[in-house]
């Protein structure tokens, strides 16, 4: 059993990796691996929201699902402090052993259409976690489900309805109600608003923030929309091709990124101000590295505008350059990068 260093940390992920084998040929021989998550470490503090960002395919969803053990990680540790104070390494538990811990760490899905079973009523969907965790009494479940639906802003009278009667935003609320059914302490939200209309996005984000305050939740918030992340996150972790490149407090990161990739990401955010459209934008050239065949040295080196010889040969490691600021770049201390908050 491993010890969590900081008492404030509810979850510590150390050196998490997930490789997907590439099989080919008649006998399905393994010819290589996709390094979806490659030696990723981060922590979640009690009650905070950690935004996990990066472009499509950078492994943020895989990493978040590994934390939930929805997929089994290849290696690494996921140290979790359970409600009764025990520290467990979730990565080392068997599927049976993990069951009692599952209710403490729940998930909100990206697609509100595929995440709800269309063949079940709201009562059955939201009540399922309760049922399989021992609440056999229907009356009790009915009461809890109506409580949950009220909590997420839906009318409890809708309980007998099927998901097809609801809009995307309402469905996402149903998904949130299901995730909260077992009183989890950590909620992993996998792009919970990216499938919704912008107007509805704001409502759902506000709901998530209210719920966090009310229920003292800790969020791991996976997203690619930086404006959403900026609004909800206390800290932000940036991933690139399966690697963690930077972790920092939200404001500090937006003010002054330390990794060239973070700078490029921030600069790609569209500015809703027509007077600024003439200003020079730094765009990245080249393609995202192939996680099955990443480049030598720093994975970002073929696209990095500040590249030097060392970047092409040596992999940088994630280091704490200032208190609470982690960055994985050889030149972190010398570069002066620009953020988007002045």
């Amino acid at each position: 059993m491993t010890q969590i260093d900081d008492q404030n940390n509810i979850l510590e992920v150390n050196n998490l990796t997930k490789f997907f084998p590439i099989k080919s040929g008649f006998f399905k021989r393994v010819v290589g691996h996709v390094r979806a998550v490659d030696d990723v470490s981060f922590t979640l503090k009690q009650g905070e929201t950690l935004g996990l960002v990066g472009e499509s395919g950078c492994g943020k969803t895989t990493a978040s699902r590994c934390v939930l053990r929805a997929i089994d990680p290849t290696s690494g540790q996921i140290n979790f402090t359970t409600s009764n104070g025990n520290n467990v390494d979730m990565a080392a538990l068997s599927n049976r052993e993990i069951r009692p811990i599952r209710k403490e760490i729940q998930m909100i899905f990206q697609d509100p259409f595929s995440s709800l079973n269309a063949r079940m009523t709201l009562l059955d969907i939201v009540g399922e976690p309760l049922l399989v965790n021992g609440m056999k009494n229907r009356e009790e479940r009915l009461e809890r489900v109506s409580e949950l639906l009220t909590l997420v802003g839906l009318r409890p009278e809708y309980m007998q309805r099927y998901p097809h009667a609801f809009s995307g935003g309402e469905r996402q609320r149903i998904g949130i109600a299901r995730a909260l059914a077992l009183n989890p302490r950590v909620v992993v939200a996998d792009e919970p608003v990216s499938a919704l209309d912008v107007s509805v996005q704001a409502q759902v984000i506000n709901l998530l923030m209210d719920l966090q305050e009310q229920l003292k939740l800790t969020y791991l918030f996976v997203a690619h929309d930086l404006s959403v992340v900026k609004q909800i996150s206390d800290r932000v972790a940036v991933m690139y091709v399966g690697k963690m490149v930077e972790i920092a407090d939200t404001n500090k990161l937006f003010e002054k990124p330390l990794h060239p990739y973070t700078e490029a990401l921030l600069n790609a955010v569209p500015v809703p101000d027509p007077r600024q459209r003439k200003t020079e934008k730094k765009h990245l050239s080249g393609e995202v590295a192939n996680p099955a065949n990443p480049p030598q040295g720093c994975y970002f080196n073929p696209r990095c505008p500040y590249v030097q010889d060392i970047c092409k040969t040596t992999k940088p490691t994630l280091e704490e350059v200032k208190p609470g600021r982690f960055v994985s770049c050889h030149r972190a201390k010398e570069l002066d990068l620009s953020g988007i908050i002045k």
């Binding site: 069951r99 998930m107 709800l116």
Partner: peptide, 17 residues
């Protein structure tokens, strides 16, 4: 691969269920 199956798994439902 459907999300609702993952959701059921995360809720602690058995394979049979």
């Amino acid at each position: 691969e459907e999300d609702f199956v993952t959701a059921a798994k995360l809720a602690g439902a058995s394979d049979r269920r």
